[in-house]
């Protein structure tokens, strides 16, 4: 396509140069638009409800978004590498079940380690299938998602697995408090800082981005493309695994199903996050703000008495608007990709 439309491209470029006035406004909105929208919604809900703009509500929002935020941040790496991971929801459940099952026999540290190890293994399998196995990311992870659904039911027998009340340290992970702040929120913050540094400052993040942007260029630059795709899937599964362990600790039990619900939220957050700061590609900070936005709006609407159905409607609308804005800002010459 690029060869067939050079003339038009050249024309488009001159257009951009002549419209510097409007493009300054455009680039401002491109960078700050989404954040502006988030702030506006925050202000709106604060005006509508006296309980919204309080510290305790802020804490509540953070607490409720923990698992979702972890999944979304992990998914960010896979989307940045140019693939999809639909298995993350199921990974949450699997990790949760494995951990809860093992705590009585090998203690919480061992159980947590095995749970996270299993998550990483699933991620590695996804990655290897997508790269060396030459399978499509969507189909592979969809298959793994179903597969894990079976494993989960098999391991749990279809019942919830309780965690013993005496596992005080393990329960502290999800239920503890440090001053006014919930301990899992601190874990989330720590994971976020690591994840953000990893993606912006490390070679891993740099190469994952390069691979997602132009795999051919990455290949010719001597980057081992497959390795970084696999790493992105492992990171995604690992983050989901951490989410699964916190979920187990928060509810003192593992549920046989339910992780899937987080999947769609995570995708919404990643694509919403891609518009933040005008990056046009997924990044960890954007994803975190995206999750926060979804949960903030949900909490706010709840407070001013808007029904669940309307909230869902709104979430769908937000996702379409965010992706639409992204497409409008990064206009392609000819649009012929429909994935």
């Amino acid at each position: 396509m690029s060869t067939s439309s050079t003339g038009a491209v050249a024309k488009a470029r001159t257009d951009i140069q002549t419209e510097t006035g409007t493009s300054a406004i455009l680039s401002f909105f491109r960078r700050w638009g989404t954040i502006l929208v988030i702030i506006l919604f925050g202000v709106f809900f604060s005006l509508m409800s006296p309980y919204f703009g309080t510290v305790s509500n802020f804490n509540n929002i953070l607490f409720s978004m923990i698992v979702s935020a972890l999944l979304s941040m992990g998914l960010t790496y896979v989307v940045a590498a140019g693939s999809f991971d639909l298995s993350i929801g199921a990974v949450v459940t699997t990790t949760s079940i494995i951990t809860a099952l093992l705590i009585p026999s090998i203690g919480w540290i061992g159980a947590t380690a095995v749970g996270l190890g299993a998550a990483c293994l699933i991620g590695a399998v996804n990655g290897v299938l997508v790269t060396y196995g030459r399978l499509s990311g969507i189909v592979t992870t969809l298959g793994v998602m179903f597969l894990l659904g079976g494993v989960n039911t098999y391991l749990s027998g279809g019942y919830q697995i309780p965690v013993d009340y005496n596992e005080a340290v393990f329960r502290f992970l999800g239920q503890g408090r440090v001053g006014p702040i919930a301990f899992p929120v601190i874990i989330l913050a720590a994971v976020f800082v690591c994840g953000h540094v990893l993606s912006t400052r490390s070679k891993a993040g740099h190469y994952i981005g390069a691979v997602g942007d132009n795999p051919m260029a990455a290949y010719y630059s001597g980057i081992s493309v497959y390795r970084w795709v696999i790493v992105s899937f492992v990171l995604s599964a690992l983050f989901s695994g951490i989410g699964g362990i916190l979920l187990t600790s928060i509810s003192s039990s593992a549920q046989p199903v339910g992780g899937q619900g987080y999947l769609l939220e995570a995708f919404a957050a990643v694509f919403l996050g891609a518009t933040i700061l005008g990056k046009g590609k997924p990044h960890v900070l954007g994803t975190l703000l995206g999750v926060f936005f979804l949960y903030m709006v949900s909490s706010g609407m709840n407070m001013i008495g808007i029904s669940f159905a309307t909230r869902q409607l709104f979430n769908g609308f937000v996702l379409l608007a965010a992706v639409g804005a992204n497409a409008a800002l990064n206009r392609e010459e000819i649009h012929l990709k429909f994935i």
């Binding site: 060869t3 740099h206 981005g209 390069a210 942007d213 990455a218 001597g222 590609k281």
Partner: peptide
């Protein structure tokens, strides 16, 4: 070739040094 292989969302500098970044683990 006439259609160069560059990573479009990266900067010129990042493209030139892609795969040969001066440091080991960090960027």
């Amino acid at each position: 070739y006439q259609d160069s292989e560059l990573a479009g969302s990266m900067t010129v500098a990042e493209n030139i040094l892609l795969g040969n970044e001066p440091s080991r683990i960090w960027i």
